[in-house]
Amino acid sequence: MAISSILLVVLVGYFLGAISFAVIVARGQGVDIFKEGSGNPGATNVKRVLGAKWGNTVFALDALKGFIAAGWPLLVYGGDNRLAVIGLIAAILGHSFSVFLKFRGGKGVATTIGGLLALMWAVLLIGLVIWLIVFYSSKMVALASILFALSLPVSAYFIHGTQDPRFYLGLILAVLIVVRHRSNIARMFGGKENKF
């Protein structure tokens, strides 16, 4: 991998990820998403504050960011999973720590899902099944998202093995998503986490 290729993939991924559709959509509806609901600029909070239509729109756009960030290096660089992994991680970091929002941002779940669709759909499918089971049994998006994240390296290990960069992507994503949900984890232990 050339340094110039890595740098380009990182820059495109980060700045693509840094576009906050939650903030854009909420402002379009006259809402400061940082001051409503949980205060998190992500699809779940938009759905909670503005309803399913706008929440699902933000989710789809955030997922598209991840899909593009991981997908274009696969097309341009001959299916190089390493560059695709780097692009997705950069997009998630951009989403979570956006330069446009003073390094604030969402938790990166939708962006992760879009990238995984491009990189390892079978791992994503297993994770989504786990998400659905946990969400419908607990009504907690955060708990479902955390267990979705933890399933990624386990599934990647069995499907792709430890020599594949996608296994390490699963590990990194699990850590990133769990860390981004630390306030939710604290609320869960305190019995104060929001439910749908």
Score class of each variant (00 low, 15 high):
51 G>H: 01
7 L>M: 09
74 L>V: 05
146 I>M: 13
4 S>A: 15
142 A>Q: 06
169 L>W: 04
43 A>W: 03
78 G>K: 03
184 N>M: 05
172 I>R: 11
77 Y>I: 09
17 G>V: 03
29 Q>W: 12
8 L>M: 13
103 F>L: 05
24 I>Q: 04
148 F>S: 08
107 K>W: 06
69 A>D: 10
169 L>M: 05
165 P>V: 11
34 F>G: 13
70 A>Y: 03
107 K>E: 09
10 V>M: 10
23 V>T: 14
171 L>E: 08
99 V>R: 00
137 S>V: 14
191 G>D: 11
159 I>M: 13
119 L>P: 03
159 I>H: 06
86 I>P: 05
72 W>G: 01
96 S>L: 04
21 F>T: 07
35 K>M: 11
127 G>E: 01
59 F>I: 07
84 A>P: 09
39 G>E: 04
72 W>Y: 14
99 V>N: 00
150 L>Q: 13
94 G>L: 00
144 A>P: 09
48 R>F: 07
117 L>T: 14
177 I>P: 07
171 L>D: 09
135 F>I: 09
192 K>I: 09
75 L>G: 07
44 T>Q: 03
18 A>I: 00
101 L>T: 03
64 L>S: 06
61 L>M: 09
147 L>C: 04
90 A>E: 03
152 L>G: 11
24 I>T: 06
102 K>I: 06
167 F>M: 08
118 A>T: 10
185 I>C: 04
88 L>F: 09
82 R>E: 13
102 K>Q: 13
49 V>M: 11
116 L>E: 07
144 A>N: 06
60 A>Y: 05
14 Y>Q: 03
43 A>L: 01
3 I>R: 14
20 S>Y: 00
78 G>S: 05
189 F>I: 14
111 T>K: 04
93 L>G: 00
118 A>H: 04
52 A>Q: 09
180 R>M: 07
19 I>P: 01
62 D>P: 12
41 P>F: 04
138 S>E: 10
27 R>D: 12
114 G>T: 08
75 L>A: 15
20 S>H: 01
194 N>Y: 15
142 A>F: 02
28 G>W: 00
84 A>M: 02
154 V>C: 07
186 A>Y: 14
68 I>W: 02
49 V>F: 02
120 M>Y: 12
14 Y>G: 03
